[in-house]
Every structure is written in structure tokens, then in C-alpha cells.
Amino acid sequence: MTKPRICVTTGTRADYGLLYWLMHDLHDDPDFELQIAVSAMHLSPAFGETVRFIRADGFKIDAEIPCLDDDDSDAGMARAFGRAVDGFRGAFEQLEPDFLVILGDRFEALAAATAATFLHIPVGHIHGGEVTLGAMDDTFRHAITKMAHLHFTAAGQYADRVIQMGEAPERVFNIGAIGLDNFRRLSIPDRLELMRELEIEPEREYMLMTYHPATMDSASPVAALEQVLEALQSFPDLAVIITKANSDPGGRKINARLETFHSQHRDRVRLVASLGQLRYLAAMKHARVVLGNSSSGLIEAPAVDVPTVNVGPRQLGRLKAMSVIDTVEETGAIVRAMTEAMSPSFRDAIKDSAPPYGRPGDATGSLLSVLRKIDFARLLQKPFYDLPDQALKE
């Protein structure tokens, strides 16, 4: 009997970090054949060419779909989307996967789902049902949900929302946040090892910062970033580890400003395109505070009791733990939020909290147990599910 071919798509350092154990376990599972399709930021030197991390982890890459160029304007990203759709189309025609796994909400994820729809390939979507009103990814995520045939959500409320969108309950599985498996299964470097690798004084405390464009915000992303950088001046004793912005519209402008900031503060600022999975998790686990607007500050940081200062509207609408402090993009407000987050009383208060995405578990195992029971050929027959109290009347 032919083993089902499961194709996993990844376009960024972030989603690869979340998908690592799923890829690892699919590769080792005798019941499946793993295929890997890599696209977007992974293949771009401007964003660290992070495909090298996937290869270094021992994975065979079955398809590469380059789609980015130097234009990250709205129109430029629309053109990148078109290239990605055609690239995935070609890759899927060659690989002929029986099932496609897509995580999240980025444009290349939508492109993969679009190509799969035309080629009648069933899709499993991870992290559907979430809301991030400050980014166009919010629209992409819900579009992928309607193209998908199985859904693996990170919280019960998100599972309910996917069902609300017309997806049959028997196709929706609340497995928790899959990226949290990393804290249980990886050997994360200790603090001294991390400090040594980043050339930071061992006794110095630090913050971890990632700031992406809020693509639905009319304000300039660089103008908003200036408020964040100005706030950092109020904490001169803290080192700052910064990972660069993603390829969303405005990302390159943010990264250019961060380069300048780094050049002016080399004594305490470390700026990298990507830390890699292990170092990023270590940097988060040992940080005094996580600053910025990345989803990792809302999902992974609370799972290890690290406070987060979430800046601006990008994550507006997402479930948030007690350890997350929201603030507007204004220097004084950011300073106040940082001061509160780093206070001993705040750290003590969040230790016994229950993060909405849970603690490290076995989301990967839960997902695989679903795939073992699925007849992939029958997934394409997808009904629309009406909520019982809202069903259309004859």
C-alpha cells in the first residue's frame, strides 16, 4: 500500500520553528511520506536565507518557491503573491501530495492554499480561527480556513470560530499551540551559553524585541518604531536582542532603521535576521521581558512565564495571557508598560496564571493521531456547516 504523501509548507523562520516537530515526526513515521515545500523569506538573503536552518536540521527539501523581490510595497507584495501561487502550482504538480499542511496566515500560505484548491489537494490548516485586526494576515487566515478541509486550532475559542465560519465540527480539532512542543522536546541552551554566543556580558540582563509592520495601520511603521526605540533609552542597563522584521509591506524600512540603531548602540544591542530556533527560544526563556508585536510574545512567552509588552494594533483581537501588557505606540506609554512588566510583583503575579494557549504539551502527537485516521481521498467532499440555531429555513 502506498504511503500518503504529506507536504508541509514553510515560508518564514517563525512558522518553521512551529512546524519543526511535525516535520520531524512525519519524517520518522513509517505510515507517511514527508514532502517539504519552502518559499518566501526562507529563500531571501535580505531576510537571512533561513532555508539553511532547515537543511542544517537534516531535512530534504522537495521544492523551493522563490517569490520575493526588493519591492515590499502593497503592489509589490501582490506581485509576490502571484509568483507564489504559480510556484506552488508547479511544485504540487510535480510532487502530487495527498495532503497539504499549512500554518498561519501569511501571503505565501494563502498562495499555497490557492494552488492546492485548483489542483484538488486537501489542506490541513494550523492556527485558524484567530483574529489579528492590525494586519492583513487576518483576512488571509480566514480565507485559508475556507479553503482547508481539516483544522487544528490553538484554543477552544478559535475552534468555535472556525465552526462559526461554516466548518463541520468533526473536522475541527483543538490541539493547542503546536509551537509550545518545542519547550518540552528541545534541549534549549542555558543563559550563560546564550550570552556567550551573542557576546553579551554574562551578568547583564536583556530584553528580546521583534517589531513587524502593522499592515492594516495607516501610520508609518518606521514612525511607530521610533517611539519604541526612544523608549529603549529609558533602560540603558538592559542589553537588547532584536530580530529583524518580516517581509510584509514596510518590513525593509523597519530593518534599515534597526541597522542604524544597532550601529549607534553596539555596546548593548544585538541585531540579527534570525536567531535560529534554539537560540530564539533560549533568548525568550531567559529574557527579562519580550517587547514588540510578534505573536510569539502572546503564545510562547506566556508559556514560560516571561512578561510581554505588546506594542500597537498588530495583534488586536488575539487572546492574551495575564503576562501580556498592551500599550499604544507612544514612548511614555511603552516605558510605563516596560517598568510594570519588569517589576518583581508582576513576575510573581503571573507565575500561577493559566495562559490561553496552554503550557508545553504534545500538540504534534494530537495532530498526527488525527492524520492516521483520515481517508484523504474523501476530504474534498466538504459540506458547509450551519450552526444549529442559525440554519437556513426552507
Rank of each mutant, 00 (worst) to 15 (best):
T9Q: 04
R13C: 06
A14Y: 05
D15C: 05
L19K: 00
L22W: 03
L22R: 06
L26E: 01
H27M: 13
L34K: 03
I36V: 15
V38C: 11
M41Q: 15
H42Y: 05
S44W: 08
E49H: 15
D62F: 04
D62H: 14
E64Q: 15
P66C: 13
C67I: 08
C67N: 15
C67D: 11
L68C: 08
D69Q: 14
D70W: 15
A75N: 14
A80Y: 10
R83D: 00
R83A: 02
R89Q: 15
R89M: 08
E96L: 07
L100G: 02
V101S: 00
V101F: 04
I102P: 00
I102M: 00
A115M: 11
L119G: 08
I121F: 04
H125E: 11
V131P: 03
T132R: 05
F140E: 01
I144S: 02
A148S: 14
H151T: 11
F152P: 01
A155E: 04
V162W: 06
Q164D: 05
G166W: 12
E167R: 05
P169W: 11
P169D: 07
F173T: 14
A177R: 08
L180R: 00
D181F: 08
F183Y: 15
R184D: 07
S187W: 04
S187I: 11
M195E: 06
P202K: 12
E205H: 14
Y206H: 14
Y206A: 06
M207W: 08
T210E: 02
Y211R: 08
H212S: 03
H212C: 02
S220P: 10
V222F: 06
A224W: 00
L225H: 13
L229F: 13
L229G: 10
L229Y: 12
L232I: 03
S234A: 15
F235I: 07
P236K: 14
D237F: 10
I241W: 13
K244A: 03
K244Q: 12
A245E: 04
N246R: 04
I254K: 01
I254Y: 08
R257Y: 00
L258I: 00
L258Q: 03
H262I: 02
S263E: 13
Q264T: 01
D267C: 00
V269A: 01
A273M: 09
A273T: 12
Q277V: 06
V290Y: 07
G292D: 01
S295E: 06
S296P: 09
G297N: 07
G297P: 09
G297E: 02
D305G: 11
T308Y: 04
T308R: 03
G312K: 13
Q315H: 10
L316I: 07
L316Y: 12
L316N: 09
G317Y: 10
K320H: 10
T327V: 11
T331A: 14
A337F: 04
T339P: 00
E340H: 12
E340P: 00
A341V: 03
M342F: 07
S343Q: 09
P344E: 14
R347P: 03
Y357T: 03
P360V: 03
G361R: 04
G365T: 10
S366H: 06
S369A: 12
R372L: 06
K373D: 05
A377N: 12
R378M: 05
K382C: 04
Y385E: 11
D386H: 13
D389P: 00
Q390N: 13
Q390C: 12
L392I: 10
L392Y: 10
K393Q: 09
E394N: 11
